[in-house]
Structures are given as C-alpha cells and as structure tokens.
C-alpha cells in the first residue's frame, strides 16, 4: 500500500508532539511517554499518580474528535495487517516497551531531546528491529 510523502504535515505534527512534551514537563514535571502513561494507569500507586495520567490520556483520546470538528473528517487510519498480526504485535510491543522502559514517545521524543544515553541506544535499536521485521514480513515471507 503506497502512502504520500507528507514532509510539511509531518514536521508540523512532530512540532506539536514536541510542544506537548515540553508543556507536560513545565506544568507537571513529567515525561510524555505513552508506555509510562499506560503502565501508570494499569499499575497505579496512588490516586494522584493515576489522575494526571488519565487526564493526559483523555486529552489524547479527544483529539480525533477535535480534528473531526475542525476539518469534518477523522484522521485517516489504514491498517495493512491482519487482526492476528495486530494482536501479536501489540502483546510484543507491551512486553518490549516495559522491559526497555519506553517507546517512541518516551525514548524517541523526550529521551533524545534530553540527550539521554539510554534513549540514544534504545531508539536506533527499535528502529533497526522494526525495519528488519518489516523487511522479513514483506520481502522474505511475502506478506503485505
């Protein structure tokens, strides 16, 4: 499935992601990481720790509705993989993100911006294994 190259929209969207991470740091002093948010909700240690994470997640979940309100269309989601692959991939993502203490947002955006040595190792590692996985699935196994 071909997708259009969107350098300007992607750069602008990325800038908004960066801005949100900065605001969460300035406001609450916390890292904007999806894995941390999810783990913090699933294994909450206190009411306060649960509430701010739920508020951030609520804002995230509201965002497609806001985009729909402004543009009249939901953001496009094209899923080129089977439900089974989504489920298998999701479980692996959950295990890996928790073991590696972060994912694209926590290590990728926040960690690299803070010049964290751990993130500088984590990000090339997951980009490499994701690339190899896509290569194997699409060009060795011949899936889509």
């Amino acid at each position: 499935m071909e997708t259009n190259f969107t350098p300007f929209a992607s750069l602008a969207g990325g800038a908004a992601i960066g801005l949100s991470a900065v605001l969460l740091m300035v406001g609450l002093g916390r890292i904007m990481g999806a894995t941390g948010l999810l783990s913090g909700v699933l294994f909450a240690e206190s009411r306060d720790e649960l509430m701010w994470r739920l508020a951030v997640i609520a804002g995230m979940v509201l965002s497609p509705g806001v985009i729909w309100g402004v543009t009249g269309a939901m953001p496009s989601i094209e899923v080129p993989v089977s439900p089974r692959m989504i489920a298998i991939g999701g479980v692996i993502v959950g295990i890996g993100a928790r073991m590696g203490s972060g994912c694209t947002s926590g290590h990728g955006v926040c960690g690299l911006s803070r010049l964290s040595i751990r993130s500088m190792v984590a990000v090339p590692t997951f980009i490499l294994t994701a690339g190899l996985t896509v290569f194997v699935i699409r060009h060795v196994l011949g899936g889509s």
Binding site: G33, A34, T35, L37, L38, I57, M60, V61, L62, S63, P64, G65, M74, P75, I77, V79, P80, V81, M85, I86, I88, G89, G90, V91, I92, V93, G94, I95, G96, A97, R98, M99, G100, S101, C103, T104, S105, H107, R118, V121, A122, V123, T125, F126, I127, L128, T129, A130, G131, L132, T133, V134, I137
Partner: peptide
C-alpha cells in the same frame, strides 16, 4: 534496555501501531 527496545521494535514492525499513536487513535 537493549533487549526490551529490540522486542518493542519487532512488535511495532508487526502491528504498525506504537502506544503513543494508539492512545489518540482510540478516539476514532
């Protein structure tokens, strides 16, 4: 850190979603 990140990348490459993309996407 290294094994966890490697595993995460494999899952990301299989599903195409990562947690940070999926949370807002829930709203669709």
């Amino acid at each position: 850190l290294v094994a966890g990140s490697a595993i995460f990348g494999i899952g990301w490459g299989i599903a195409g979603f990562c947690p940070g993309a999926a949370l807002p996407a829930l709203g669709t």
